[in-house]
Structure formats: structure tokens, C-alpha cells
Design a protein around this nucleic acid. Sequence first.
DNA 1: TTGATATAATTCGTATTAGAATTATATCAA
DNA 2: TTGATATAATTCTAATACGAATTATATCAA
Lengths: 171, 171
Amino acid sequence: MPNTTTVEEVINNIRRVFQVFNDYSKKAKREAGLTGPQLWAIKMIAENAPLKVSDVARLMFIQPGTVVGILDRLEEKGLVSRTRSQKDRRVVTIELTEEGKDLIAQAPEVIQGHLVKGLESLPAENFMIIANGMEQLVKILGADELPPMLIHTREICTPQKKNGKNSGKIG
Amino acid sequence: MPNTTTVEEVINNIRRVFQVFNDYSKKAKREAGLTGPQLWAIKMIAENAPLKVSDVARLMFIQPGTVVGILDRLEEKGLVSRTRSQKDRRVVTIELTEEGKDLIAQAPEVIQGHLVKGLESLPAENFMIIANGMEQLVKILGADELPPMLIHTREICTPQKKNGKNSGKIG
DNA sequence: TTGATATAATTCGTATTAGAATTATATCAA
DNA sequence: TTGATATAATTCTAATACGAATTATATCAA
């Protein structure tokens, strides 16, 4: 048991966790031809479609403006479709194309998924070690009040029935 | 004691830690007029100058190409100086200007510094909880082999004596 | 109905980041 | 000395990200 762990080692470990999340883009790109955020987005869409643009943003914890760029690139690759909602013409409904669904079937797990599976398959004792550690860390950083993550939470929005479909440019 | 912690809560906590690091940029910008990376860079320089560009990159764990952009903006603000080394004309020596030193004196602690201080001031027991938790997490993510962080490590490089000084454009 | 306000998506400007290519300089071997 | 190789900084391209502004549409109140 490492009862001689130093502050430096802990920080190294925090950094390693960061790096894994950040560098996952490379591995994803190798395996699926998509960047990390693109893969993360398409997975979210696959699991929750139909989604509004703002829902994708909420699921990924990024700004809507950033999602637009990611969707542009996914649409360019023919993996997702944008459909202007008839019910509320401000809304754009995001879905996977057939090609997108095919890709998802073989796409590697996103890093977030790895983490969930890793934690779920852990012996209770080891899990509690992590749980307690993260809780302490959050307290140190004064991050207690930040909103929760909603990973894998369904019903993020009231998903709208799409009635119209006009591929290509929306307007 | 939270012996009912769920996977979701752990992931929320991980996310909170991430958010603290990412959102710190805003606070830094408010308090010092610099973005997070800019503040982190200038702190590294303050503590280790003179540094080569590649040393700054190594200290920040980012690519040299990225550092160039950050240094450009810091130089534009008059906070750092670039000096082409006489000994080895490939090398550019980075130092703080007087203005940069003044800013550092009042600049807020970088988030990394907060973390170090927080961990150091923790009761041994709580510290070990975090240490063990992070170690487990690193194992799950298979991040064991990533290089160490070198926070606050001196003598990253053989710091060169600067003999020449020609402010402005280097070449 | 009309005007004020709110909401959804997008665009714009700035910054950060990686990775690849480029330029300049240094070093080492033949 | 010269040529091959290595190293340092920089430039370039593409992607991500935020916040602010913009456009289009919806909703609510007068």
C-alpha cells in the first residue's frame, strides 16, 4: 500500500486522467475516422435521437455554437441529418443517417463509456475508494456547487415528433 | 458516510474537477486580464526563467507550436521578452519584462497552484483517500504509462546564460 | 393585433490545441 | 570541409471551445 504517496504523484495522476480524456481524439480518429468530440456527439445522437441542437449541447456540456461546427462536419461526412421542425420552426432535429448508424455499430467506445463500464465492473471496495477520493478532491477545489452531468440520462428534452423531412440545406 | 455513491455521482465529480480547471480561465481573465493558459505560462516563466520555448512547452505539457501562440500574445501585451541566444542561435530565451513581474506580483494563483496547496494542507488521512482514489482511477483508464508532470521541478533544461539582447523581432 | 420578451440555431471573433511542414542552426561523421 | 542528421522555433491547417451578437420564430401581455 502506498502510504508514501506525495502531492506530486497525486497531481501526476490527475493529469493522467486529463490526458486520457484529451488524447482520446487520436485513438478515436484512428479507429473510426472521427475526432473525439465527433464520436461523442454521434454516440449521444445514436442513443437519444431525435434531438434538438441544444439537447446535443446539453448532453455534451458544451455551447450550442460549438455543436453547430461539430454537426456541420458530421453532416458533411453524411453521418447525421438536420431537419427543420414543422411544429416549431426554430428547432432543428438531429438524427443519424443510415451511414451514421452503420458507423456506430463498429465505432469504438467513447472514453466516457469506458469510464462508466470500468467503474461499474469494479469491486465495491475499490469503487468506494475512487468515490471517496473524488469527493474529497471536489471539496478541495470548491466545486461542490457545479451542476450534475446527466450521463446516460434519457428525456433530456421533450423529444419532438418529426413530420417533415427535407435533407440538405435547412431554412 | 456515502456508502451509496453511484457511478453517476463519481462521474459527476470527475466532471466537476474538469470544469474547475476549464472554467478557471474566466476567473483568471477577470482578475488578471489573461486567459488560463497565458497565466499558467507566465507563472511557469516567473518561477523558472530563463527558459527556452521548448521548456515552457514541457512545463505546460503542450506542443511547442501552441506555446508560440501564447507567447505571441504575452509579448504583445509586453509581459514577456524573447531573446535569441548567442550561444545557440536556434534557441530563444524567454523572460518576464518588468511589467510581467509586476503583474505576477498581483496575479491570482493558477488553478494548479491551488490544487498543490490544497493537497499539501490536507490531513494525512484525507490526503490518502484522494491519493488512493486517483490511483485506482488511473488504473481503470489504463493511463499508468503516461509521463509524470514535473510540477515545480527546477532544472527542466540546462538554463542558458543570455548574453545578447535584442528586443522586438527575433531572427 | 401588436409589441415586448423569450427561445433556437447560427455566425463571428478570439484563443487554445495538435500535428505536419518549414526554416535556421548545430553537430557529427566521412 | 562537406554532407547527413538532429534540434529549436516557427508557420500552417484543422478542430474545438467560449461568449457575444444575429436571425428567425414563438409566446405572452396589453
